[in-house]
């Protein structure tokens, strides 16, 4: 039997007045997968999550969560779908525990409610402050409480929007471990974050959004391979001649490195031609290595925020990246 993805969204569009927040977005996240959602501020990540959850009505497209269609006007969110969106907010005059109990009552299941609330409080490190009024909670404690509110739904699909933004390093580590554990147990976790290292460390799949459009969707490895201008370090027997050959015959960016050698930013076919050209020019290649690029620099390129001095060709920043259009 083929299991449907935990999240299936196709052709999702949303407009706020004249501003197009999402345009023809397709998104799929599977069970057991930690799926990163990346994009600069205002790219549409949170709006996409809100649309997927039915908090914001879509203008076009279809959304299904755990195999059930989402219609904000009629059906409730499917059971076992949970979310931590934005900075979580609660009733400040109630304790953390009372807030969770009320939310659990909204879910309707009475069996084991108190146990689930207690367990979520322990999992998020809030057991000690559980009976304090939320009005006195710090931003980090509210974020933990938001996570606890999601966990009491024993999620099979969990949306986390910047879940570690208000947490200290230890808290952030705990949240990452929790997200990974949930994914290992078979849940789909969709995580948006500005922290590239966090996404790189956690996520197996990535979707990059810019200007309301999906500009990349695939694995982290595929993203690296799809980089429009791979960077290689090159050392030759005659760097001066090699630089001159590059400048005269090939459209590529070559940057000398302190201590010898240089960086070459070029598509792989251009690099092949350049290396052959060096051989014809009597220059030996002594060292050629593809430099691992950080997800951050790739992200900046994809979203058109790259340093103008960087290696990315200008045209690539304007076009969405698809496997067929980018040299690997």
């Amino acid at each position: 039997m083929v299991t449907r993805p935990a999240v299936e969204a196709s052709g999702v569009s949303k407009r706020f007045g004249i501003r197009e927040a999402l345009r023809d977005v397709n998104f799929i996240a599977r069970r057991g997968e930690l799926h990163g959602l990346l994009g600069p501020n205002g790219a549409g990540k949170t709006t996409l999550m809100r649309v997927l959850l039915g908090l914001v009505r879509r203008d076009a497209g279809c959304v299904s969560l755990l195999g059930r269609n989402v219609d904000p006007g009629s059906a409730p969110l499917p059971d076992r779908v949970a979310a931590l969106i934005d900075t979580p907010a609660f009733y400040p005059y109630l304790s953390g525990r009372a807030n969770l109990e009320l939310l659990a009552r909204l879910d309707g299941e009475s069996g084991g409610r108190a146990i689930r609330v207690d367990r979520a409080l322990v999992q998020t490190g809030l057991a000690v402050q559980a009976d304090d009024a939320v009005a006195g909670y710090s931003a980090g404690m509210r974020q933990r409480l938001g996570l606890a509110a999601a966990l009491i739904r024993t999620p099979q699909l969990l949306f986390l929007d910047e879940p570690t933004s208000a947490l200290d390093p230890a808290g952030a580590r705990d949240v990452r471990a929790l997200a990974r554990r949930l994914a290992d147990e078979g849940a789909a976790v969709v995580l948006s974050s500005h922290d590239m290292s966090e996404v790189e460390e956690l996520c197996t799949m990535l979707t990059v959004i810019n200007g309301g459009r999906v500009v990349f969707s695939g694995t982290v490895g595929e993203l690296r391979m799809l980089a429009p201008a791979a960077v290689h370090t090159l050392r030759t027997s005659d760097d001066c001649t090699a630089l001159r050959v590059a400048a005269e015959r090939y459209a590529m960016k070559v940057t000398p490195i302190a201590g010898g050698g240089f960086e070459v930013s070029a598509a792989i076919e251009d690099l092949d031609a350049y290396v052959i050209g060096l051989g014809r020019a009597g220059v030996a290649v002594r060292h050629l290595e593809r430099r691992t690029r950080s997800l951050e620099s790739l992200f900046l390129e994809l979203t058109g925020h790259a340093d103008p001095e960087s290696a990315m060709p200008a045209a690539a920043a304007d076009e969405p990246l698809h496997e067929s259009s980018v040299a690997s």
Partner: peptide
Amino acid sequence: RYGTWSAVLTRSRSRAE
């Protein structure tokens, strides 16, 4: 005022309910 709509509407209750 409290910013709690997201918390309320991401439970198992429809808007009508």
